[in-house]
């Protein structure tokens, strides 16, 4: 048992090499993209996009910690706030569509084309 050492969160974060964060968040981001690509349900697509945003957040926090620069974390708050606003509008749109066509399958929405 090692004595529990008081570690600051940035230090904790820095215990993992930066590249790992990069890889993980990129993986998360790509998973989000794949989700957008493969799903037809509007809500799940939307969730995948949120996943992409969170990948960005993770990355920003990692960079922020490594650089000891608070701007990155500020940005994360902005992203979260804006994402919330986006969710509000996005869900409203999805609801509106559901009211009209009784479905939220984006595959059905292809009246506008060519």
């Amino acid at each position: 048992m090692q004595p529990t050492q008081q570690v600051s969160i940035p230090e904790l974060i820095q215990q993992v090499p930066l590249n790992y964060y990069l890889i993980v968040s990129t993986a998360l981001f790509v998973i989000g993209i794949i989700g957008v690509l493969t799903r037809r349900n509007a809500i799940i697509i939307f969730m995948s996009i949120e996943l992409m945003l969170n990948a960005v957040n993770l990355l920003l926090i990692a960079f922020s910690s490594y650089r000891s620069d608070s701007a990155g974390q500020v940005f994360v708050f902005f992203i979260m706030a804006v994402a919330a606003a986006e969710v509000a509008v996005g869900l409203a749109i999805i609801v509106m569509i559901y009211r009209n066509i009784r479905s939220i399958d984006v595959g059905l929405l292809n009246k506008l084309k060519w």
Binding site: V36, V56, L60, E86, I93
Partner: peptide, 26 residues
Amino acid sequence: NEAALKYFLMGAFATGIMLFGIALLY
């Protein structure tokens, strides 16, 4: 409706890409 959803989904997706770019720049 369709326009709104398309715009929204794709716009949000593009925002995600842009943000990733900004994060990398940072």
